[in-house]
Amino acid sequence: MTADFTGKTALVTGSTSGIGREVANQLAARGAHVILSGRDEARGEAAVQAIRATGGKADFVRADLTDTRSVTHLAERSVELGGRVDILVNNAGLYPFAPTAEVPLSQFDEVYAVNVRAPFFLVAALAPAMAERGSGAIVNVSTMVATNGMAQMAVYGSSKAALQLLTKSWAAEFAASGVRVNAVSPGPTRTEGTAALGDNLDGLATTTPLNRVGRPEEVAAAIVWLASDAASLVHGAVLPVDGGRLAV
């Protein structure tokens, strides 16, 4: 049965490209009013126009998730545009790869601001209203390196490990009020953002039983399912979408 999001508003962070844009496309195709966000206004407007061209409903809000004031504005503006936010997808993320000794303080702070602090305060701003209405869905995007240690991924992996713990904490906090909080844990996925990894991306894929790089639409499908009523009994889960990496 195809999920129906008619009448619902979904905020998807980092949705001007890659997995986030595919999530926005799939939610809009199923009737949701989608609020896209990112730092690049031109890409954001292009993504919105593409959705509208197919009959979907979408708006763009420019947001810099390293800035707490911008995070607050994103939450407030999303409610203004959609009337309310029923679905929050915390997809935006930074993923620098570097030896621990070579990570500057500024980069460490930036990664944690985007990957941990921004989702925390978006949930703080939007989940209470979901709880008051008795329904809502939050999906956080993690990574397989949050549970599998890999060299040069200490900052990225640890930030997403924090997001996975927040997923479980929020599920415990909001489940009784009808708000579902879950996460997906993608493996290597070919997007604009991972293009810089080159052959390293394919190398990561060889560590999975499937032995191939994933596609954004495959990860997005799992996110959309978690956001749908079909996942009504799923709370606090971290769903691996990684070609079987969990199995080895």
Rank of each mutant, 00 (worst) to 15 (best):
V238H: 04
V184H: 13
D59P: 00
V181E: 09
V248K: 12
F121Q: 09
G136I: 03
L11K: 04
T194Y: 14
V238A: 02
I87E: 01
V103W: 07
G244P: 04
A220Y: 11
V116F: 07
D109M: 10
V213L: 03
G178N: 07
I19S: 14
S142D: 10
G136V: 08
K57Q: 13
P188D: 12
W170V: 06
V181L: 09
I51T: 03
Q49R: 14
V141A: 08
E192H: 15
P240A: 01
R62C: 12
A124T: 06
A92M: 01
G31V: 03
P186R: 12
G136F: 12
E110W: 03
R190D: 15
V238P: 02
P119H: 06
L246R: 14
K57D: 13
G7K: 03
P96I: 03
E173Q: 13
R180V: 00
V111L: 02
G149D: 03
L226D: 07
S142F: 11
T189C: 15
R52D: 00
T2V: 15
A98T: 03
R52I: 05
K168N: 04
V184P: 12
S232G: 09
F60I: 08
N140Q: 12
L197F: 15
A63D: 05
V248P: 01
E102N: 12
A118G: 02
A47I: 01
A172C: 01
E110A: 15
L233A: 05
A227N: 02
H33I: 00
A146W: 06
I19H: 14
V139Q: 11
V71K: 07
E41I: 09
A247Y: 09
V111C: 04
D229I: 02
G44A: 12
G178T: 04
H235K: 09
M1T: 09
A42C: 05
S70V: 05
V155Y: 09
L122V: 07
M153R: 13
L197M: 15
G55P: 13
A92C: 03
T147C: 02
G214Q: 08
S70Q: 11
T147S: 13
L166C: 04
G93W: 07
S17F: 10
A231Y: 08
P99K: 11
A101F: 07
F174A: 01
L105A: 11
L11R: 03
A46Y: 11
A230C: 05
L166P: 02
A231T: 04
L126N: 07
V111Q: 09
K8H: 02
G20T: 09
L94T: 00
S142Q: 11
V89H: 06
N140V: 10
V155L: 09
G14T: 01
V12K: 07
N25V: 13
T143Y: 10
N200R: 15
D67P: 09
R30W: 07
A47S: 15
K8V: 00
T66G: 10
M150K: 14
F5M: 05
A151Y: 08
V114H: 05
A53Q: 13
G38M: 04
S177G: 00
A92G: 05
Q26G: 10
A46L: 12
A231V: 05
E110V: 00
S106L: 03
T6H: 11
L27E: 10
D199N: 13
A92W: 01
G56C: 06
I51S: 03
A151E: 14
